[in-house]
């Protein structure tokens, strides 16, 4: 692994690629409620950016960019965001994850689930929750395996 840090091509190329990977990751997450994509895929793509960074520049650099404690915290936060949205619906008087209770659907909607105002927001929040969790858990797994192996 140490040798990888000396590879100029790798370093330069990853520096160029990483921002694009991240943007694509966010795109996939955001687009999840309408088309192919979503939190799981986007999260993994996001994580791959970090893991690539870790592979090429070493785990110390990665720890600087994404401190393990923050990553762990974000993992929990993601799940909370997901279940929080669900609980919000619950508190608003509906069933768990019944988004229509966040903002009631428009009058005369054919299918409340598709024409509702809050539907999209609810879904996006949930997707982000999932995405953040998947991404951070992947990073944690990577950290764990590399750390323990070298210890």
């Amino acid at each position: 692994m140490k040798n990888m840090e000396d590879q100029v091509v790798l370093r330069v190329f990853s520096k160029i690629m990483i921002p694009f990977i991240i943007i694509f990751g966010f795109y996939v997450i955001t687009h999840g409620e309408l088309g192919p994509g979503g939190g799981f895929q986007g999260g993994v793509i996001l994580a791959s950016a970090f893991i690539l960074y870790g592979l090429v520049f070493g785990k110390d650099q990665l720890a600087e960019a994404a401190p393990p404690r923050v990553v762990e915290g974000l993992a929990a936060f993601g799940v909370l965001l997901y279940s929080g949205v669900g609980a919000w619906c619950l508190l608003a008087g509906g069933n768990f994850l019944d988004y229509s209770y966040i903002i009631p659907p428009a009058e005369g909607a054919v299918i409340p689930h598709l024409d509702g105002g809050a539907e999209i927001w609810g879904m996006i929040l949930v997707e982000y929750g999932v995405g953040i969790t998947v991404c951070t858990v992947m990073i944690t797994v990577y950290n764990m395996i590399t750390e323990e192996a070298e210890a």
Binding site: E72, A76, L80, S83, G86, A87, L90
Partner: peptide, 13 residues
């Protein structure tokens, strides 16, 4: 189910 799930992740904090 949701309560232990949320509580579980909150435990981390």
């Amino acid at each position: 189910v949701v309560l232990p799930l949320m509580a579980g992740v909150i435990t981390v904090f």
